[in-house]
Nucleic acid binder design. Structure first.
Length: 256
DNA sequence: ATGGTCGGCAACCGA
């Protein structure tokens, strides 16, 4: 079983390269974030053509998440708080023999802003949701763009970024609380080193080429899933040939 | 080298 996550920064712009990647890599499940499309305009037919179902929660202009899958999901939920008007940042369900949650955590803007407080709250509420619905003995993957780099290995210049948004102790504390509850950062089971990034800010000149990036996308798993993991990797060159996203694909393969 | 980040969406906001 192969699962991947990718922040598209517009699913419509990335659609051709996305389809190409899915055809060649054949993931069983693909979690998308920042699809930036309203539900009525989600390109479900294009994914159906290559054998994928989709569940999604979109909104106009911002955010938006989707799960594409070869097999149908059950008990799909498209909101963290369960409200109609909340931002489109959460989609989850049960797929075959495990539970899946796909998130797009708020970016936070700057540490002195209301948006940062919202980000911290959202991370706390995500943990509360997980505590309420699961135990660490359940097979569960929590996947997506968390907009937080966990430690010094996860950014290019930790000294320079110390205390900034995306690399702030209060964010890291909340992401670690998720791990402490019973989730393993699965990339780290296979790769201990630094410089393994999933995001390169468009505003950094030649950022991708110089590998000035961040690891802010994760595949987290409870022990039953961590034990099944065979390999986890970043497909660094897969952002899209023509019009690359600022993120790339993170992929995990499991037994069974 | 002769430019300067993207995407949505129609002036800027968000990342």
């Amino acid at each position: 079983m192969k699962i991947a996550t990718f922040n598209t920064n517009s699913v419509r712009v990335r659609l051709p390269s996305l389809i190409q990647w899915m055809k060649s890599q054949q993931p069983d499940l693909l979690c998308l974030q920042e699809i930036k499309v309203q539900d009525k305009d989600f390109p479900a037919a294009a994914f159906e053509e290559i054998g994928y179902r989709s569940v999604f929660k979109g909104q106009k202009t911002y955010n938006g998440v989707a799960i594409l899958s070869k097999l149908p999901g059950e008990d799909i939920r498209t909101a963290l708080y369960g409200t109609d008007d909340e931002e489109a940042r959460f989609v989850g369900g049960r797929y075959r023999d495990f539970h899946l949650v796909n998130v797009y955590v708020p970016q936070g803007f700057s540490t002195d802003s209301d948006k940062f407080a919202y980000k911290l709250q959202w991370l706390e509420d995500l943990l509360a949701y997980i505590r309420e619905h699961f135990t660490p003995a359940d097979p569960l993957l929590v996947v997506g763009d968390f907009n937080v780099a966990l430690d010094d290995r996860d950014v290019h210049d930790p000294k320079h970024l110390a205390g900034q948004v995306g690399f702030h102790p209060e964010e890291q504390k909340r992401l670690r609380a998720l791990l402490d509850w019973g989730l393993t950062d699965l990339l780290r089971r296979f790769h201990e080193g630094g410089g393994l990034y999933t995001f390169w800010d468009y505003r950094v000149p030649k950022g991708f080429k110089r590998n000035i990036g961040w690891r802010i996308d994760y595949i987290l798993g409870t022990p039953p899933m961590a034990e099944r993991a065979i390999n986890v990797w970043i497909d660094r060159e897969a952002r899209g040939a023509d019009k690359p996203s600022d993120h790339t694909f993170l992929v995990a393969e499991f037994e069974g």
